[in-house]
Simulated assay, not measured.
Amino acid sequence: MPTAAPLLTPADLHGRFTPTRGHLDAATAGLPMRATVRALRDHVDAWQRGELDLARCDQDVVRSRAAFARLVGVDASDVAIGSQASVLVGLVAAALPDGAEVVVPHGDFTSVVFPFLAHADRGVTVRHVPVEELADAIRPGTAAVAYSLAQSRDGRIADAAAIGEAAARVGALTVCDLTQSAGWLPVDASAFDITVCSAYKWLTAPRGVAFLTVRPTALARLRPLHAGWYAGHDIWGSAYGPHMRLADDARRLDVSPAWPAWSGAVPALETFAATDVEAVRRHDVDLADRLLTGLDLAPRGSAIVSLPDDESGTARCALEAAGCRVAGRGGGVRLAFHVWNDADDVDRALTALRPHVRAVAH
């Protein structure tokens, strides 16, 4: 019996990116692997020559769906594809009954929250509570709890186990956004009724590649609002009406793919599906915690770090002047460490940050 290939390490992944110093912003947008850049160029070249192979385009989607399924521990039949997280969360919001209550973390990313707020006209109410209090906030009558596993603003990790247990006691749907976690934090999507994930951050795919996972028991609750030929039981046999037969599994929720993005997604997703994600977590968190301890701050155990900044963005400007790519978020400066980063990136950031973070903090 053949032995399984060893899982890829962060060092293996590091070598698949073009060397780039100071990119501490995976939480905004990941860097593309060299293989992704080649795949995108090949796709555009074939398009320009009039030689685009649509069967190959379909295979890019099939391979990407399968790779994502392996990464998050579900069957490919439980995975739907889309373009953006908010589009997929919108399917869940539209499925809730009039007057439903939804619980979300205060300050979560709006792609998780706005789709539910948009249904206020039919009585859907949204309660905002601190992410640490989500489990306690779920009560009889709560229809759904929706949250990002890792918070975009500051990298706090929600207690998914406690939230899941509380939701199960009252029959509430669990809707989890994996956009800021899949790729660096080990994830088991089968623990949630529904997950969504945009793959252009930690999974380093082109923007326009997103996934939804759904438990078979929850699939019937979701109306395929975006149903088109790509959601058909037979994709290429579903191009014309008048009769509709959708796929029996999660593919019935598919949004027709933007082909170039999926060509670039294949090498990225297949690489992460073959990676030791726990090793990636240790690598990323070790770098983030090294930054914090270098600033005399307590480690936080997340790949995402939020630090105080003044209204002028002094700390962020100092980082940018030192050659660091970061983001201003939630009144602070946000840094995110991933597989292309190393200790030199931490030292560069520390040199820039020390005088400014301490001045703001104290």
Rank of each mutant, 00 (worst) to 15 (best):
V104K: 00
V131F: 09
T271P: 05
V145W: 00
V74T: 08
A250S: 00
I138S: 00
D342Q: 09
V266K: 05
D159R: 04
P32C: 05
T275F: 08
A27D: 08
V266H: 15
A189S: 14
W340L: 14
A258H: 14
T9D: 06
P186K: 04
F17W: 10
D75W: 06
M1P: 14
A94E: 13
A361I: 01
F114H: 03
V266C: 09
F337R: 01
R65G: 08
A93C: 06
P267T: 03
A46M: 02
I81A: 04
E51T: 01
D177R: 05
G99A: 12
A273Y: 09
I235Y: 00
G328Y: 01
V209C: 10
D347G: 07
P140W: 02
R300H: 13
S306R: 13
T125A: 15
L292T: 13
Q151D: 10
M1K: 08
S111A: 15
L134F: 11
S181R: 12
A210S: 07
T9Q: 04
L178T: 01
P206F: 05
P97H: 11
F109L: 14
R56V: 02
G171W: 03
C176W: 01
V277Y: 11
P10I: 01
H119R: 15
S181T: 12
Q180L: 00
L24G: 01
L13M: 02
A162N: 05
D345L: 08
D53L: 11
H119T: 13
R290C: 02
A150F: 02
L52M: 12
V339P: 06
V280F: 05
A220V: 07
D60G: 04
T195V: 04
H362G: 14
A191L: 15
A27W: 03
V255A: 10
R282F: 06
I163M: 03
A67D: 03
R21Q: 13
W202N: 08
A210T: 01
L203V: 05
H106K: 14
P206R: 00
R290M: 05
A318D: 07
S306Q: 07
R348D: 10
A247H: 06
V339E: 08
I163E: 01
A318P: 07
G50H: 09
A182H: 09
R282K: 10
H338M: 06
T125K: 14
A258I: 12
R56C: 09
E165Q: 15
G82E: 03
V360P: 10
E133C: 03
I194E: 04
G141H: 03
Y200I: 11
V87W: 12
Q48K: 15
P299T: 08
L225M: 11
A120P: 09
G183C: 12
T351H: 12
A80H: 13
T125N: 13
T174F: 06
V346I: 11
A199Y: 02
E132W: 02
P2S: 14
A261T: 10
P10M: 03
F17H: 02
S77M: 01
R34F: 10
G164A: 13
A199R: 00
S152N: 11
A95H: 08
L134C: 06
G171I: 01
L149N: 02
T204S: 12
S152I: 07
S181G: 15
D75F: 03
R252H: 09
R139Y: 13
A150L: 04
